[in-house]
């Protein structure tokens, strides 16, 4: 019981009756439809569900990339639905690290520069951010690929650069939308292991995946269907 209370104080993300509806012609698509979730600091959460069930939509809402049609999303007790774009940019830059299925590296920048990019927007001085980027690339095992452009890297390497980039401003939350979706099983497993490690280091991780094997690493799994949470299964 004491344990439980402590966890509540540790809450970092709370979704309260969150919905996102799209108008597609005459129809209204309820991509996310009344979701309540609480995530605590250090949690490793997986979201699974069939294609079109609203996983990415929910993820983008949590990551402040999108605005909900209804409901509130609290990040560190701040209701991000009430914030302006420039504040949202700050939150995306400082509190959240994104990892995308398609890597989304800037093709004209080297691996090192891609990792420094989030720090540029936070006005981190040059020396400091280069040192930090090198450290992070070393951490993901790419210290020998610093000056490579994305198209000179393999898929697995690209995703590791993307993970390093997500860590650049040392965010509390890592959001990963099918990070292993474009990788073969072996590379996928390597990347999944990295999330494990980050979780062990205390990062809060939300991972969207199709792959039950990858989801197995998580403490908790939410299953989405038609924009609603179908059930929740925990490992612990």
């Amino acid at each position: 019981m004491v344990e439980r209370k402590k966890k509540t104080n540790n809450e970092i993300i709370r979704l309260k009756n969150v919905a996102k509806w799209y108008k597609a012609g005459d129809e209204i698509v309820k991509a996310v439809d009344g979701v309540d979730i609480v995530i605590n600091k250090g949690d490793f959460v997986a979201i699974v569900g069939p294609s079109g069930s609203g996983k990415s939509t929910a993820m983008n809402l949590v990551g402040a990339l999108d605005i909900a049609t209804k409901g509130d999303i609290f990040l560190d007790n701040i209701n991000i639905e009430k914030l302006h774009e420039s504040d949202l940019a700050q939150i995306r830059g400082r509190k959240i690290g994104f990892v995308f299925q398609t890597f989304n590296l800037i093709p004209t920048l080297t691996a090192l520069e891609n990792v420094t990019l989030p720090m540029i927007f936070q006005r981190v001085p040059y020396e400091e951010r280069v040192a930090r980027a090198k450290e992070l690339l070393t951490k993901v095992g790419l210290d020998h690929r610093l000056t490579h452009l994305p198209n000179m890297l393999s898929g697995g390497e690209r995703q590791r650069v993307a993970v390093a980039r997500a860590l650049a401003n040392d965010p509390e939350v890592i959001l990963a939308d099918e990070p292993t979706g474009n990788l073969d099983t072996k590379r996928g497993e390597e990347v999944a292991q990295m999330f494990n490690k980050l979780s062990d280091e205390g990062k809060t991780i939300i991972l969207v995946t199709h792959d039950m094997y990858v989801a197995k690493h998580a403490d908790r799994i939410y299953k989405l269907k038609d924009g609603k949470i179908e059930n929740k299964s925990g490992r612990k």
Binding site: L65, A89, R92, F98, N104, F121, R165
Partner: peptide, 13 residues
């Protein structure tokens, strides 16, 4: 997409 990515990593308008 690049613009979206930059925004996702903290770029303001």
């Amino acid at each position: 997409k690049e613009i979206g990515t930059m925004k996702a990593v903290g770029a303001r308008n």
